[in-house]
Every structure is written in C-alpha cells, then in structure tokens.
Simulated scan of single mutants.
Amino acid sequence: MAVLAASERLCDALHRCNDPAAALGHVEAARLALLGAGLLTVNVDATKPGDPPGEIHLMRAWTSNALAYPVGGRKRKLRTPWTEQLLVRGEVFIGEGEAALGAVFDDAALIASLGLRSVINVPLLDGGLTRATFNVLGPRPHWQAHEVAAVRLLALVARPFILRLASVLESAD
C-alpha cells in the first residue's frame, strides 16, 4: 500500500506542476517514501564545444542535500569505464559498496561520511545523447531489483522536468 500511496501522491503533485525544481522536490518525496534515507542529485551535461577532447563537464542542477552537494557544483570527468557506460553509452550504472564508490567518485569520503554505501545513476537521454543523470545514493550496501526498478521509474517520471531544467541552465550559461 505504501508504494501505491506514494505513487498517487506523486502523480497528483506533478499533474499541475510547472516548476522543474518543485517537481523534483515531489520526486524526492516519493523516493524517500519508497526507499527511505538517501540522497538524490541531478547532474546536467555542461560540456562546451571548446572544452578539451575527452573531458565531460557536469553541473549539479538539483539536490536533496544542499549542504553537502550544493546546486551549481561542477565536476570535470575524464573518460573512464563509468563515464563510458553512463554518459557515452547511456546505460544505468549501479555501484554497490565502498570499494565500488571509491573507484568511481572523487568524493567517496564525503559519500561515506553521509552513511551512503551504494548508488544508482540513471542517464536521461535526449536525441540519443545523455543530457543529465538522475543519481540516487543509499545507505544499503546492495540494491534489490525492485529498488532499482523504482529509481529508474522515478527518473523516467522526472525526465521532462530535468530536461527543461537543463535547457534553462544551458541558455543561462
């Protein structure tokens, strides 16, 4: 019943929502109801044509924890198996355990200090290219199949709002 109630609340809230940030707040409330403690961030591709080849620039467009991960934070990523999977091929990445997070994220110590031990990164594609990522971190060391499915569905529901937010940020740059 909790899944149904959270889904109904999210649908009702998003039905008339025009503000991308407010919509993501509703998505975070559903994430919290469905998965419990954790972190949701959204990064948009901020790579510019003049950036060095092989570099991908990301900018945080939304976060559920602005103290640890403020909106506007930027990351420069080089080509790695993680960037190839998530950002180039547009495939979901699941990282479980501190070793997996440490191998992928420069801020693994901060992630661990927040009690987070696993991540699901969902690429949001537009025209076949990854325009943004929907990132859920949790305290559990392993994700269950239904949790991965829930995160992917939340990302899909959030996609139009995130792409609109990405367009706004892109035009402001």
Results as ranks from 00 to 15, higher is better:
residue 72 G to M: 03
residue 72 G to I: 02
residue 73 G to Q: 11
residue 73 G to K: 15
residue 74 R to Q: 14
residue 75 K to Y: 11
residue 76 R to Q: 10
residue 77 K to T: 10
residue 80 T to R: 05
residue 80 T to Q: 09
residue 80 T to N: 06
residue 81 P to C: 09
residue 83 T to I: 00
residue 83 T to S: 06
residue 84 E to L: 15
residue 85 Q to R: 14
residue 85 Q to I: 00
residue 86 L to G: 07
residue 86 L to M: 07
residue 87 L to S: 11
residue 87 L to R: 00
residue 89 R to C: 00
residue 89 R to W: 04
residue 89 R to L: 00
residue 89 R to G: 04
residue 90 G to N: 03
residue 90 G to L: 09
residue 90 G to D: 06
residue 91 E to A: 08
residue 92 V to C: 01
residue 92 V to H: 02
residue 93 F to T: 14
residue 94 I to R: 15
residue 95 G to E: 06
residue 96 E to D: 15
residue 96 E to V: 07
residue 97 G to V: 02
residue 97 G to S: 02
residue 97 G to Q: 06
residue 98 E to G: 13
residue 98 E to K: 05
residue 98 E to C: 02
residue 100 A to E: 03
residue 101 L to D: 03
residue 102 G to R: 13
residue 102 G to E: 07
residue 102 G to P: 06
residue 102 G to N: 05
residue 103 A to M: 05
residue 105 F to R: 08
residue 105 F to E: 09
residue 105 F to V: 01
residue 109 A to N: 11
residue 109 A to P: 05
residue 109 A to I: 01
residue 110 L to T: 06
residue 110 L to Y: 11
residue 110 L to D: 07
residue 111 I to P: 07
residue 112 A to G: 14
residue 113 S to L: 08
residue 116 L to K: 09
residue 116 L to Q: 01
residue 117 R to N: 15
residue 117 R to K: 05
residue 118 S to K: 01
residue 118 S to T: 15
residue 118 S to D: 07
residue 119 V to G: 05
residue 119 V to L: 13
residue 120 I to D: 05
residue 122 V to N: 11
residue 122 V to C: 10
residue 122 V to I: 07
residue 122 V to H: 12
residue 122 V to R: 09
residue 123 P to A: 00
residue 123 P to Q: 08
residue 123 P to W: 02
residue 124 L to C: 05
residue 124 L to P: 05
residue 124 L to Y: 01
residue 124 L to Q: 07
residue 126 D to K: 15
residue 127 G to I: 01
residue 128 G to N: 07
residue 128 G to P: 02
residue 128 G to M: 02
residue 128 G to Q: 03
residue 128 G to L: 00
residue 129 L to N: 12
residue 130 T to F: 09
residue 130 T to C: 08
residue 131 R to S: 10
residue 132 A to I: 08
residue 134 F to V: 00
residue 134 F to G: 04
residue 135 N to P: 07
residue 135 N to K: 04
residue 136 V to G: 08
residue 137 L to I: 07
residue 139 P to Q: 13
residue 139 P to C: 06
residue 141 P to I: 09
residue 143 W to F: 10
residue 143 W to D: 09
residue 144 Q to F: 08
residue 144 Q to R: 15
residue 145 A to M: 13
residue 145 A to V: 14
residue 145 A to Y: 12
residue 146 H to D: 14
residue 146 H to K: 12
residue 146 H to G: 11
residue 147 E to P: 03
residue 148 V to L: 14
residue 148 V to D: 12
residue 149 A to Q: 13
residue 149 A to I: 11
residue 149 A to E: 15
residue 150 A to G: 12
residue 151 V to M: 04
residue 151 V to E: 12
residue 151 V to K: 13
residue 152 R to C: 10
residue 153 L to P: 04
residue 153 L to T: 13
residue 154 L to C: 00
residue 154 L to I: 01
residue 155 A to L: 08
residue 157 V to A: 12
residue 157 V to E: 14
residue 157 V to D: 12
residue 157 V to T: 15
residue 157 V to G: 03
residue 158 A to C: 03
residue 159 R to G: 02
residue 160 P to E: 01
residue 161 F to N: 07
residue 161 F to T: 03
residue 163 L to C: 04
residue 163 L to S: 06
residue 163 L to K: 14
residue 164 R to L: 11
residue 165 L to P: 10
residue 165 L to D: 11
